[in-house]
Design a protein around this nucleic acid. Structure first.
Lengths: 330, 330
DNA sequence: CGCTTCGATTAGAGCGCTCTAATCTGTAGC
DNA sequence: GCTACAGATTAGAGCGCTCTAATCGAAGCG
């Protein structure tokens, strides 16, 4: 910077102003400085800038599984909104490990991110915000103490999925849950509640929102159970894919033998040869809202806020009436 | 930091040493300082640290499409290797836009990333490294002037895919190319070369490695052509999905009516109900190698290096012998 | 008991930028 | 010609850390 200043015969301060497009620089000087900067190949050092301004213009985003399209959708929403307001995004993948999630949060704090967005946190510990170093934290898909939250009504979503299967005549409905994953407990509650209302026996096995675990859980089911369910409600689309996968390799046909419902309505679910019945939680929109939340915080809002979106059932081709029911209808 | 030093009755320098786990601090002081730091909730400021050390311990990764599992696979490989050596990853999505790709590169340069990895660059301009500000750049999937490269032999891959279809008896083989995408031209060359050797008429339509464009391109094909190909070689898996999608909605059955081959062997392609025949380019491995390349650079290697991996055909269930050929074999 | 040695600690000068407040320049008004 | 004023420019003090070189203190030794 000094070099540029010397070369152009001006002060460092002026160079600084030019680099930041300050309006209070004469046209004449602006061009002069700009040109010498280009000529010398000068690029401002962001670390120094951040230090001096004590802000980074960057939002940290913690996500948990790059392979799960849910996160890609959410990031799309965040990115669109962030770009518009001149913020950069810094992504970090925690790979479903609460420990790494915590560490990512700490790293973001050390880098003095202007704010941190946690997508589908997998951390059951509620003290995540303690390591945020005072930066505003917005959580998508799960409530976290002292953080803003953008949610969808997971309990309602769980009801919708279960209700859908019941209406199709299913009575033996298995729920593959999402373990400690974001919203998993609420989806489970919705399922249990609805089963209870219909006086059906609930049946829950455990997953963790990944395709792999889901696949294995279903394999284990086949290995241990004689009587299979006629329908499976998987806690998210990504596990639903694992379920479909394993059902396929067991020679079970969907939806003829078993119906499957997912949750998230990822881009994936909409594909014609998957065509997964699922619950739409407007993931992209949640990304948008999360970023808006951040902006409000940066503009001075103090109170924590929770926004809840309404889920919606998207019936596709992995669910059908039970054989018994079909006969009845015919 | 000053506060911690005062409180503990030591100098700032010592606090600094403790925060960095320096071996030259007495056990006594280490505990003292650590405790007061915790008590005061002190966290070092990474911006200041980066500035003083003039290094960030962070690798910037530019990727192009969060929805394409190819990138998730590659990042997995990078991350595993990076973690092991104490580097953070900073991801930035360029959304297939060369302009944004360039901007991301500049931003990373300003942030003084220790190195930059470009995954599947979509930029046809070769001067990308000019804006890297001197940081080592490693490109995965495409060569870029003045940057290390980790590639697979795309031309060979194109040959493998095409050869496979020819061996199944296909003569009318369409190639949906990858436009300006990384490796697309080589895959195209492999296709053209193989077709030529078999004295078959090449037939190319244009894509850009996205599902959406692929889908539309095939729709356009149906709208304008009477005679359809019997096989389609899509330049990557993600477009292949778009192709499958559109074929499905046109009521064409795969592989009975039309065979489809992809490229990348993304996790996606292996799913049972997709079961896409594709070319494996060891994406995860490429991520690993890219990170190793970075490490070597940081350890002082000067010369630029190119590594080429061998592609391999993975036959699955989207390809089959032509009807004519099946008759012949029977 | 003074001298060396070596590990532990510290003072103080940067790192490259931004910010505030002060200064400079040129124009206008009287 | 002098003051006023607004816009353009600059000096210089930080921002919070690390690094080098210097200093301190406790053994160890003859």
């Amino acid at each position: 910077m000094q070099d540029v200043a010397n070369e152009a015969g001006v002060s460092r301060a002026l160079v600084s102003l030019v680099m930041r497009d300050s309006p209070k620089v004469s046209e004449h000087r602006r061009i002069l400085v700009q040109q010498t900067a280009d000529r010398l190949g000068y690029r401002p050092n962001a670390a120094a800038r951040n230090l001096a301004q004590s802000r980074s213009n960057t939002i940290g985003v913690i996500l948990n599984d790059l392979h799960n399209p849910f996160f890609a959708d959410a990031v799309d929403g965040i990115q669109a909104e962030a770009e518009e307001h001149g913020f950069h995004l810094l992504l970090s993948s925690a790979n479903l490990n609460p420990e790494i999630e915590r560490k990512s949060m700490a790293t973001f704090a050390e880098h003095r991110m202007d704010a941190i967005i946690v997508l589908g946190s997998n951390a059951p510990h509620e003290d995540l915000v303690d390591v945020s170093g005072g930066a505003p934290v917005v959580s998508v898909g799960r409530t976290i103490r002292d953080a803003d939250a953008v949610l969808n009504d997971d309990e309602r979503g769980g009801e919708l999925a279960t209700q859908h299967l019941i209406e199709l005549g299913h009575t033996s409905i298995l729920h593959l849950d999402g373990g400690t994953g974001a919203g998993a407990d609420a989806r489970l509650r919705g399922y249990l509640q609805t089963m209870k209302e219909s006086e059906l026996q609930p049946w829950v096995i455990h997953g963790d929102y990944t395709e792999d675990t889901a696949n294995k859980a279903i394999a284990a089911l086949f290995a241990t159970t004689e009587k299979l369910p006629t329908a499976i409600f998987a806690a998210n689309d990504f596990s639903a894919v694992g379920v479909l996968e394993q059902l396929r390799s067991q020679g079970v046909s969907v939806p003829t033998d078993i119906s499957v419902v997912g949750y998230d309505n990822t881009t994936f679910a909409g594909l014609g040869h998957v065509s997964l019945t699922t619950v739409n939680q407007q993931t992209r929109q949640m990304g948008h809202l999360a970023m808006r939340c951040v902006l409000e915080r940066l503009n001075g809002r103090r109170a924590t806020v929770t926004q809840v979106l309404e889920p919606e059932l998207i019936p596709r081709r992995t669910t059908a009436a039970t054989a018994f029911n079909q006969r009845k209808l015919a």
